[in-house]
Amino acid sequence: MVIVWLVLTLVVVAMGYVRLAPSDPVEWHQMPDQPQVKDFANGVIRVVETGPNGLAELDAIATATPHTERRFGSVEDGMVTYVTRSLVFGFPDYTTARQAGDTLEIYGRARFGKSDLGVNRARVEGWIDALQPG
Rank of each mutant, 00 (worst) to 15 (best):
D39G: 11
L131A: 03
S115H: 03
I128Q: 07
G73D: 11
T95E: 01
G73P: 14
V44T: 09
V80S: 02
T9K: 05
K114A: 10
S74F: 05
R109A: 04
H67Q: 15
G101C: 04
E49V: 12
G113H: 02
G108Y: 01
T84S: 14
I61S: 00
P22A: 14
A110E: 08
T95S: 03
P92A: 03
P66I: 11
P92W: 06
A130I: 06
M1Y: 09
V88I: 15
K38M: 10
P25W: 04
E125R: 04
K114P: 00
G54F: 00
V47L: 08
R85L: 00
V4R: 10
A130H: 07
T68K: 15
V11L: 15
T50V: 01
D129G: 13
S23Q: 13
P133V: 12
G134P: 15
A130P: 10
L58A: 02
W28R: 06
V88Q: 08
H67R: 15
L10S: 13
D24Y: 11
R46A: 04
G73S: 08
A56L: 00
A14Q: 11
G16V: 03
G90R: 05
L10W: 11
V12N: 05
S23K: 14
Y17C: 04
E49G: 06
V119S: 15
L10D: 04
D116C: 13
Q132N: 13
T81E: 01
D102R: 03
R70P: 03
N53M: 02
P35I: 11
L117C: 04
P66L: 12
V44P: 07
V80Y: 06
S86V: 05
I61L: 04
G51L: 00
G113D: 01
E69D: 12
G134N: 12
T81G: 03
G16A: 10
E49I: 08
D39Q: 14
A97F: 04
I45S: 11
L6T: 12
A100L: 01
T65C: 09
G78N: 13
P66E: 11
M15F: 12
T65L: 14
E27S: 14
G101I: 02
V47P: 09
V80Q: 02
A14K: 02
N53P: 01
G90F: 07
A56E: 00
V37P: 15
V44K: 05
Y17G: 07
T63Y: 12
L10M: 15
A21R: 07
A14S: 12
F91N: 07
W28A: 10
L87N: 11
F91R: 05
R98Y: 02
D102H: 01
Q99G: 06
W127V: 00
P35M: 11
L131V: 02
V124R: 11
M31V: 05
W28H: 12
I106K: 07
D24C: 13
P32H: 07
L104T: 01
R123M: 06
L20N: 09
A110M: 14
W28Q: 08
P52Q: 11
T9V: 13
G78I: 12
G101D: 02
L20R: 09
Q30L: 14
H67C: 06
V88S: 10
K38L: 14
F40C: 08
G43I: 00
R123S: 09
